[in-house]
Design a protein around this nucleic acid. Structure first.
Lengths: 246, 246
DNA sequence: CGTGGGGTTGATTCTTATCAATTCGGGTGG
DNA sequence: CCACCCGAATTGATAAGAATCAACCCCACG
């Protein structure tokens, strides 16, 4: 069984009391493997659980009548998939493995039990949902108001910030068609846009390796301001030792 | 002082215990009025509170470098504005009055106090954030993958579903330029698109009055499926009388 | 009466999609 | 080790959708 993957994720928000860490661990008890491309849960399926993503990448998407599709989220290890669907009996989107993955399903009701055990965890879940919303908002701006080249650049910068904030190169395990589906562009246009970004020395891609030499220049170009990914945690209460905070 | 406006909102999710209703009322103690167009909180401003919207319509938007802007949310009475920014010290978007409004600011920390008093309220806040996310997701699909006419139709159907699900006519207090900013289209194109929808007998607009005669036909046309606005509450615990649920 | 914001309309341009052909590269089976 | 195959990426040509620019109308409001 792999080490808990979501704990470091939550620790980014606040120091966890030992009993809180234990509680979070209970969300990752039932690992299940899917290989790249496999559907973890399809739109319309009965949605009774969430999934923690223990390893690999996954995504949520919606298929449209005309064969187009829109990629909605990209999940990295440690994230919880499906939180958005607490209030839906049936899944609103497809959850798919982007690479080979391992996920741990746990029942929705487990969340409320967690809240009962530690209201600080409720605070932290609130934070994670808020951060997800911030990412969605930024994507909305991207789709609504930026031309293809800036849109693509912004996407790459967000990915870099989430995966490898301090490296100049990182791995992006997705095809150009997939990127197009995330950005509301055709795969052909992604190809051309990439070429143009490359010619302007802003981005280099070889296979799945992305290289961004001048991050400042690219951020400038794309109007990328990473603060939407930050989380201010000063308002979160400190934990009070290994005791229930009733 | 107006009656609490957010309570009915939460009641849509679950029956509230009297003490829970009392708690929610404390969020609406400090009404403040803004007239249409006034900025309640600007991007970059210190963000220390949320706002309950007691009356009128409001919206959140982002201004871009080139003068464009993207409308991000449209708030109706009873909604809480700014929840998404729990984790941000500074506001990520502008919050603006669309009509004359009354809002009640309350400090962010009040939320965690609420959770301590009733973990069921934590569940319900989780639900509201999830619903907001669902709306964002749908908008994302709209911006990414639908042509202008379907996009506009979908927007109108969402508004109708939120304002007046059962009426064939409703009031939409916004200009075509504003709608364009919400849909990532120019005001000119909104005008043309509306004309075309009108000629196809799908939508009629006079001033701010919208008429949708054949809702089924329009939903078909726009690929609109209202289930994303529904909330399944079966998983929410029943309240246990007027007692703290420690 | 003027004034200004919103809406409409036409002409034009720009961006991106679509279609089709070709190439590239990695994996498979002989 | 090579021939083949398939999906992904590239490239070119064309078409569609939406933006932009500019003129004009309508009308509410001072």
């Amino acid at each position: 069984m792999p080490d808990s993957c979501i704990i470091p994720h939550f620790k980014a928000y606040a120091e966890l009391a030992p009993f809180e860490a234990e509680l979070l661990k209970t969300l990752e008890l039932n690992p299940r493997a899917y290989s790249a491309g496999a559907v973890v849960r399809a739109r319309g399926e009965h949605a009774t659980c969430f999934f923690t993503l223990s390893s690999g990448w996954a995504y949520a998407c919606r298929d449209l009548a005309d064969g187009d599709r829109q990629v909605l989220d990209i999940f990295l290890p440690g994230q919880i998939m499906g939180l958005r669907e607490v209030g839906h009996g049936c899944s609103q989107s497809n959850f798919v493995a982007l690479t080979d993955i391992q996920v741990c399903p746990f029942p929705k009701a487990r969340i409320t039990e967690l809240f009962d055990e530690s209201t600080r965890l409720a605070d932290l879940f609130m934070l994670t949902m808020a951060r997800e919303q911030s990412i969605l908002i930024e994507r909305l701006v991207n789709l609504g108001r930026r031309p293809a080249d800036q849109r693509f650049a912004h996407f790459l910068l967000e990915m870099k910030a989430r995966i490898a904030p301090d490296a100049s190169t990182f791995e992006l395990p997705m095809s150009q068609g997939f990127i197009g589906d995330a950005l509301g562009l055709s795969s052909v246009h992604i190809s051309r846009t990439l070429k143009s970004l490359n010619e302007r020395d802003l981005v280099a891609m070889h296979g799945n390796q992305v290289r961004i030499n001048d991050c400042r220049a690219l951020s400038e170009f794309a109007n990328f301001d990473a603060t939407y990914l930050d989380t201010d945690t000063t308002w979160v209460r400190r934990h009070n030792g290994d005791k229930r905070s009733a």
